[in-house]
Design a binder for these strands. Sequence first.
DNA 1: GGCCACATTGACCCGCTGGTCAGGCAGGTG
DNA 2: CACCTGCCTGACCAGCGGGTCAATGTGGCC
Lengths: 225, 225
Amino acid sequence: MDDERRLTAQGLERKQQLLDCAARLFAERGYADTRVIDIVRAAGVAKGLFYWYFENKEQLFRELAEEIRLRLRRSQGEAIDLDADALTRIREGAEASVRFMAINAPFFALLEVENIDKRFVDVLRQGTDVHVADVAAHIREGIAAGLIRDDDPVLLARGVVGIVGLYSHFHRTGRNEVPISELATFVGRFVVRSLAADEEIALAAEKKETRSVRATTAIRPGSSG
Amino acid sequence: MDDERRLTAQGLERKQQLLDCAARLFAERGYADTRVIDIVRAAGVAKGLFYWYFENKEQLFRELAEEIRLRLRRSQGEAIDLDADALTRIREGAEASVRFMAINAPFFALLEVENIDKRFVDVLRQGTDVHVADVAAHIREGIAAGLIRDDDPVLLARGVVGIVGLYSHFHRTGRNEVPISELATFVGRFVVRSLAADEEIALAAEKKETRSVRATTAIRPGSSG
DNA sequence: GGCCACATTGACCCGCTGGTCAGGCAGGTG
DNA sequence: CACCTGCCTGACCAGCGGGTCAATGTGGCC
C-alpha cells in the first residue's frame, strides 16, 4: 500500500468495511487466529484487495487499536463533570469506562493483546499510559485537597485504570452475572474506596449522581473516526 | 509421547530441563513466538526428543501453567497467619503474591496468555478461579466480622486477585521504579483500603507486621513440583 | 475515444514450523 | 555377549498463511 494514495468514497467505505470485519473477527477468535483470508472473505472481496488498503495485517491492527483508545478517551471526557471534586471525577470516569467497554466489548477485546504480542506493546502501552496520566492528574489534585490518601499518584492511577480494565474483562468474558450499570457502580465504589482519605469522603463521592449517560452509546460500525 | 512411559533419573532431568528452557523462552518472547526448535536448541538436544517427553507444545504449556499456579498457592498459604483477622490475612496473601510473582517473574509472564489464546482459557481461568474462591472465603468472614464493607464477596475477590496480578504485571514489564518490598506493601495497602469497612480497621490491618518471608524464595529451576 | 488512476481479482510463491520417522547409541540385565 | 528399553538424532514432510503480481475492470476527465 502506498501512503499517498487517494481513496475515493467507495475506497474509504471498503477500507472501513475491512476494518469492521477485522475488528469483529479479532474479537471473536483473537489476532493470531484470524487469517487475512478470513477478513477478506467476511467482507466478500478477494485477498489481494487487503493489501491495497493496508500495508499488512499488523498495520491494520494498529489502526484499530488507536481508534478505539481515542473513542474511549472521548467518552470519558464527556462523562466527567468538570465542576465536581477530583474523587468524584475519577469515579465518573471509571464508571463511564466500564459502560463504554461493555457496550463496545467486541472492539475492546482486541486491546487485551498487550500482554502477549511483543509487537504491539508500544501502541497499547502508550494508550494506557495516556489514561494513567489523566487519572494521576486528578489524583494529585485530590491529594492536595485532602480527599485522597497520600500515596504515589502514578501507582494509584495505574491501579484505577487497571481495575476498570479488569472488571471490563471479566464482564466481557462472561464472568459477571451483574448487569452493566450495576457493575459500573460497583467499580466506581471500589475505586473511590481504594483512594479516599477517609470513609466520610468516600461516601460523599459515591453519593453524587452521575449526570447524563450520553457518552455510553455504542460505536456504530461503519462510522469512521 | 506415551502416558505410561517410565522415565529414568536422566529422563526426568532432561524433561525438567526442557520445561525450564521453555519457561524462560515463553517469558522472553511469548508462547506463539517460541518455536519448538528454539526450546530444544536452548536445551542442546535434537528436535525429535521434544516429542519423547511431551505430546506437543500445547501440553508442555499446560504442565508449566499448572505447576506455577500450584507453587503460588503454596506460597500464599505459607504467608498467611491463620490467627490473624480476615482483612490482615488477605493483605498478607496479597503481599506474598506480589513478592512471589516478582521473584518468579519469568515463570509468571506465561500466565498472561489468558487474554489471547482461546486454547488456554480453561487452564488459566481455572487457576485464577481457585484464588478468587480462596479470597472470597476470607472476605465473607471479614464481612460477617464487620471488618469488610458489605458488598458482593466474589466481585470483591476478583478485584483483589486482579490487582495483585496487575501490579505484578507492571513490575514485570518494568513500569514500576519502586523496589519489590515497597510495591508489595503498596498493594497490600491498596487492597486493604478497597475492602475495609472503615479507615480505623484499615489502619489496623495495615499495621500488623507480616511474619516470616520464607515463602518468597525463588523457584529453583530444576526442582520439579 | 483515449488515457489514467483507482479498484479488484485469484492463482501463485515461499518460508516457516509443528510434527514424524527410521534408525543409532548406551547402559542395565540375564 | 545378546538383548531390550529408554534415550537421542536430524533429515524430512505437509500444511498453512502472509504476501505478491500480472491481468482486468471501471469511472471520470480531457
